[in-house]
Amino acid sequence: MTTSDWPLWEVFVRSRRGLSHTHAGSLHAPDAEMALRNARDLYTRRSEGVSIWVVPATAITASSPDEKDPFFEPSADKPYRHPTFYEIPEGVQHL
């Protein structure tokens, strides 16, 4: 088995009552169809009504840990960037 035949896939699962897909883990599979099926076995135990995304790991571009400071810090110390100074009206969900 070579890694080129069995590339790595990242798996994102939305549970039945979940709002968004969450990264569940990764697996090896020869292609997307098999990756979906393997993800079903490994990460969902076949609960009905869930949604699965599989993405080849090579298609994901990640932010670099080395650039963490310049990348994220400037926004942290500027309160005006965080729209938190108002009351949330009743009845607003999922905010």
Binding site: M1, H28, A29, M34, R37, N38, D41
Partner: peptide, 12 residues
């Protein structure tokens, strides 16, 4: 089984 994932599928 040939690979770990297939192991799980066959067991399932």
């Amino acid at each position: 089984a040939p690979v770990l994932e297939e192991e799980v599928a066959l067991a399932n």
